[in-house]
Structures are given as C-alpha cells and as structure tokens.
Computed example of a mutant assay.
Amino acid sequence: MPTLTINGQARQADVEPDTPLLFVLRDTLGLTGTKYGCGIGQCGACTVLLDGQAARSCQVPIESVGTQAVTTIEAIEQDPVGRKVVEAWVGIEVPQCGYCQSGQVMAATSLLKRTPRPSDDDIAGAMTNLCRCGTYNAVAAAVRQAAA
C-alpha cells in the first residue's frame, strides 16, 4: 500500500499500482475538488501539482507518484502563490459554471511558481486547460493580476 504526501499529510491508498491519481484522490481519499473531465489528459479539469508542477492526474498512475508532494485545490491557498491566484480569481469573478476552475487555478499557480512575471505568451502557453464557458480572457487577466 503506497504512502503518498497529499496536501502536506501522509496518506495511504490501498489501490492497484496503475490506478490514476485522480481516482485515488476522489474515490479513495474523498478529495473531490479535483474534477474528472475527459479522462485522456486533454481538458485539464484534473490538474494537480506534483512537486509544484502542474500534472493531469487522470494520466498519472499512482505508482509513478513516488515521493513527489501532491497538492490539490483543497490546499492551494496554503501556498502563498496559490493564495494570490485564488484572490485574483475571486476578485475578477473568473468562474461561470466553475467546473474547470480548480484545474485552471492549479495550472496558473504552477505557472507563477516557475515564472513569477509571465508574458502573455507564457500565459497562453501554460493555460491550456479547456473551459466550456469560454472564460479564457478572464483567466488570463487573473493570472496577470496574481503576478502583479
């Protein structure tokens, strides 16, 4: 049974080694803020941070997580960058339906952790999560605000 570090806590999951991290988070550990979208790593609704880097959790087998720290939307405000991102998201009122927003916030946090002052091209390159409501302009504005 692998022991994972999730949101700063050691957690165990009695699952098969090839089980996607997404299903461990949602179904085994009850952390439902990470959403299931497409299941093929394209939409980004399932984005979490692995050692600070955005990862599509539907494509990460639990056996490959190893000692990497997993951060989910439930704990993103414990990170100073994540807190700034959430504040910008709320201030600009980015979400419409909200389904993709946890993944968007995680991707934005990862971007700002590695590129604190991103250009518009950096934002466009990193913010590849899909949004059925089309909040892309508001997402980019929130990233710029969080970086300011």
Rank of each mutant, 00 (worst) to 15 (best):
P2L: 03
T5E: 02
T5D: 05
T5K: 15
I6H: 09
N7F: 10
Q9T: 04
A10W: 04
Q12L: 05
A13E: 11
V15I: 02
D18W: 07
P20A: 01
P20R: 01
F23W: 14
F23H: 10
V24F: 01
V24Y: 08
L25P: 12
D27A: 12
D27V: 07
D27P: 10
T28I: 11
T28S: 14
G30S: 13
T32Q: 12
G33C: 13
T34A: 10
T34F: 01
K35H: 06
Y36W: 15
C38R: 06
G39S: 00
Q42R: 10
G44M: 00
A45W: 02
C46E: 03
C46Y: 07
T47N: 05
V48Q: 02
R56G: 07
R56L: 06
S57W: 03
C58S: 00
C58N: 05
V60A: 01
P61T: 02
P61H: 00
E63A: 08
S64Q: 11
S64R: 11
S64F: 06
V65Q: 12
T67W: 09
T71M: 15
I73H: 15
I73D: 14
I73A: 15
E74I: 12
E74R: 11
A75G: 05
E77H: 15
E77N: 15
E77S: 15
Q78D: 15
D79N: 13
D79G: 08
D79A: 11
V81L: 07
V81T: 14
R83Y: 14
V85D: 09
E87G: 08
W89E: 02
V90N: 06
G91R: 11
G91S: 10
V94A: 02
Q96K: 09
C97Y: 09
G98F: 03
G98D: 05
G98V: 08
Y99N: 00
C100H: 05
C100N: 10
Q101P: 12
Q101A: 03
S102D: 06
A108R: 11
A108D: 03
T109W: 11
S110F: 07
L111N: 10
L112I: 12
T115H: 11
D120T: 03
D121C: 10
D122G: 08
D122P: 00
I123W: 03
I123Q: 05
A124T: 04
A124W: 04
A124N: 08
A126V: 06
L130S: 09
C131R: 03
C133M: 03
G134H: 04
A138P: 01
A142R: 05
A142S: 14
V143S: 05
Q145E: 08
A147D: 10
A147Y: 07
A148P: 13
